[in-house]
Amino acid sequence: MATTAVPTTESRKSPTTETAQPVEREVDVPTQNDWSTPQAMAIPKEGYFKLEKGRYGAIYPRTPSNYGFSVIAKVKPGREQAVRDYGKTIEAAVKGAPNVLAPLKLHYLRWVLFDVGSGLHFMYQGIFDTDFDKYIEDAVALFNATGVTTVFTNLEGWPEDWRTNNPAVIGFFREHQAPSFLEYGEYPYVTADEIKKALKLKETFSGMLDLMQ
């Protein structure tokens, strides 16, 4: 999750007030500053184009659908209902405190249970706006504080000493992360904050038009 300066129009690239700056790129990937052209990105098997080491391992690139992960792990036998019940728990937590997950800078979360013949698996897929490696400790702290972590105790391979062993928890997420080989963005590289700002502007503008009638 990013450090949050209150976002300003100044801190973002705005094509009307500033000449477009070339975006520094180390590999030949689609440009990042054109939200109006849908983009797809095929990603090498490793999950990255060029190995860039983060504190806990390779850093995954930002793609047209921003950052994200797909953590897949096998559910311990007999724990399906316990996992499903967490759907309600998280729903209630967000209802009670709508900003509880805000520090994660999320767009969407998808929690899926599936069995393709090798036992029940849990997939936790998140799309967000910050680098997984950089803010992983903050995410784990938030999972702990909101009780999200306890759902993971139903998964095989989850470290038993998760309460005191942060590196092991981070290791679990990294080991169970399945990198995408293709990501697509209809409005590429747009952050959730930018979308919310645009919608707010639209709302304000449309309210103003209503008043003018």
Partner: peptide
């Protein structure tokens, strides 16, 4: 890793800190 390296990696030498770019 959690204190010193975080400060170096995420605060000091991260281009995207505060969305600065």
């Amino acid at each position: 890793v959690r204190q010193f390296e975080f400060a170096m990696n995420v605060w000091m030498n991260d281009k995207t800190f505060h969305e600065l770019g």
